[in-house]
Amino acid sequence: MTTTTQLPAQPKAPVKPGRILLYVFLTLTALVWLVPIVGAVFSSFRPFSETVRDGYISFPDTLTLDNYKNAWNQGDILRKYWNTWLILAPALVLTLFFSSMVAFAASRYSWKFNIFFLVLFTAGNLLPQQIIIQPLFQMYNRVELPSFLSNSGKLNGSTWGLILIHVAFQSGFCTFVLSNYMKLLPKSLNEAARIDGAGVWTLYWQIIMPLTRPALAALATLEFTWIYNDFFWAVVLEQQGADRPITSSLANLGGEFFTDDNLIAAASVYVALPTIVVYLALQKQFIAGLTLGADKG
């Protein structure tokens, strides 16, 4: 049952040629923008022999899952996903936990060094990773771990090493964003908590953290992608190919296993898929996370 009310024809503003041009420009640009992704998906479903014969831009004769099957087996994709997850999940939780504590202490209390701590974390987050890597690598090489914790017997080459560096490095950005957010919560919350006899931890965990949930959700989405997308740390600190998380295993997949471009395309889709799914599902959080960071110049 639809009730459509016939409105008197609104006097339409004449469509300016400028606007048409704008739509044409945006649509064309969007189409060009999609080419690498759509191209990768498209060619990943085709046998390479056919692409060679007819070229990339051609009507497909055969659509097949063979590339996905081969990439899955040869690239050991399931194991690589699992490796990623073992690093990503703890790193994500710890990053948010650690940075929210520092942000809380620095933004909810006024003390001598609070700006110093914030500057330390903010500046740390802006350093290129390569500045850190030589001494970090040497440090990791010298920390022994029992063999049930690490295949290599060291922090270097272990899941733990990667988790720790992610937490240390990413907490820079998160502390910065969370302190900006927590600062805006009413000051009277501290006062009320004190009058009620609530301690520091109660104020943090039961009052401030629930109110910070939007920022935490936004950061979690963003950090998921950033940690998932890490390439550098894992390439250097996890040199055993089989133990690498998925993104950094691209470094050996290319040469070792994948001989044809359509297989490479299928592997790219495997690597790209989780972040694209998370982005499309949580778009709002995602963009909120970025702009929270940019909110205060």
């Binding site: 690498p36 191209g39 997308n229 993104t247 490479i264 790219s268 972040t275």
Partner: peptide, 20 residues
């Protein structure tokens, strides 16, 4: 559409562009 590439790591961007 414009934002989707940003969620990909530059490593996978390289991989994708290399093949396609």
């Amino acid at each position: 559409v414009f934002y989707t590439p940003v969620v990909l790591s530059l490593a996978v961007v390289g991989f994708m562009w290399q093949s396609v």
